[in-house]
Design a protein around this nucleic acid. Sequence first.
RNA 1: GGUGGGGUGGCAGAGCGGUUGAAUGCGCCGGUCUUGAAAACCGGUAGGCCCUCCGGGGUCUCGCGGGUUCGAAUCCCGCCCCCACCGCCA
Length: 465
Amino acid sequence: MIDRKQLRADPDRFRVGAREKGIDVDFDTLLALDERLRGLEHERGELAAEQNRLGKDTGRQIGQLKGRLKKASEAERAEIEAELRTLEARPTALKAAIQESDRIIAGVEPELRELLLKVPLPADPDVPKGASAEDNVELRRWSPAWFDPARSFRENKGFDPRSHVDLMLAAGMVDFERAVKIAGARHYALRGDGMRLHQAVLRFGLDTIVNDHGFVPVSVPVIVREECMVGTGFFPTGRDQAYHIEESRRGAGHDLFLTGTGEVGLMGLHAGEILDAEDLPLQYATVSTCFRREAGAAGKDTAGLYRVHQFDKVEQVVITHADEAESRRWHATMIGIVEQVMQRLELPHRLLQCCTGDLGPKNADMIDVEAWMPSRGEEVDGVPAGAWGESHSASRLYDYQCRRLNLRYRGPDRKPVVCHSLNNTVIASPRILIPIVELYQNADGSITVPAALRPYLGGVERLGG
RNA sequence: GGUGGGGUGGCAGAGCGGUUGAAUGCGCCGGUCUUGAAAACCGGUAGGCCCUCCGGGGUCUCGCGGGUUCGAAUCCCGCCCCCACCGCCA
């Protein structure tokens, strides 16, 4: 959520920011509501101030008069009652006015809040302008000596590639049909070496982030309350991407949602807290199952393990002081960690600076990592040319997320300050199995295990074949 | 699923109709003492919003919502959440 004060001070910055992200927000209504609410709250404050004053002045008198009334004779009674009526007239009228004021405010407030939650964080000035992923800017690429994506697969390895679907089916590493029988399209069942490789990759990711980079491993709920989804910025915009468990229909107090990333749980951990400045930065990592409805992706990437409803991901988040330079340093650090992970797996990859149109509401800046996936891309003479496919995403959010989560720390003057947050994929599987299996495949259909993963597979060097 | 208990400031924990935004303790900040530190003592210390001549001022908040009352942390109603025990259970 953005800061209302900042919005008032410079509405154009937010108008432009939303436009550049391609997000439509009714700023005219929002600004009008903001002003209206401030006026209403001011009036309400004036009324309450008078009420409090009266409470101190005449309140005691009324109390005393009522005491006297009980013991009063008939003659005194009428006089006291008249006096009481006079004294009570103003407070009674005030109360009615305050109730009316509250009623109006109760109508305006949710309307304002709803609009405010939709305002995206403007992209940073150094983020390239653009409408979609097409306009993302490549920053750099890396590939191991044994595979150059600029050349064909055959030129690199001496034979044409098989897709991960072919290879893994042949090696008994995955079963799509039976998984679809159980759960429908976009589901899969990893088995045998497929499951072992999946677990190896996740453990490799978690160990790297925890052992090499000092992140604290945490397990978090993947089934959360709505406020957690709103707080982390996935709602309201991404509401249709989350699985919704309607427990309220069974008499429970609230519904639950399945999280699409461990970020939700990790960030939710400290919601509503005021942390000590010395405790920052908080560096957390989790491995969690992620659930995504993939609404609107009908027909896209239907085959294989690329786009599925359920997967596992090692995710890292950092919660820092409200300092742009510090945020940016952490962003660079996290990106470096991903590059290290990809290099240790020896997977060709490139870094993309996402443009404004590809950012999503909560990010000021986002770097995607794409891995080379031989089975993707156009076919040339019946052989896929290969293409880059997204494997990671590192986001910098300033205080957008923490403001929604009400996550703060005590600043130098002891006043609470909203924290900054960042998040990044360490590794997501089975998607990452696509480049691993396809790039490490051998002519006989076997798959060489990347050296970095061998310790996690009991030293085995080859799978399938 | 059943029964009982409870939600108060950073934490612990009083208050149960008026001057209590809230005792007390711990923690934290500042000061005195000390060569320094500790101890002791003194003072300060919630958050949001609005206004400000930047000294401060107003208001809201004791789980949430509604009610009673001139006045509610305190009484009433509804809701949410947490805890304990029993049952079931990976």
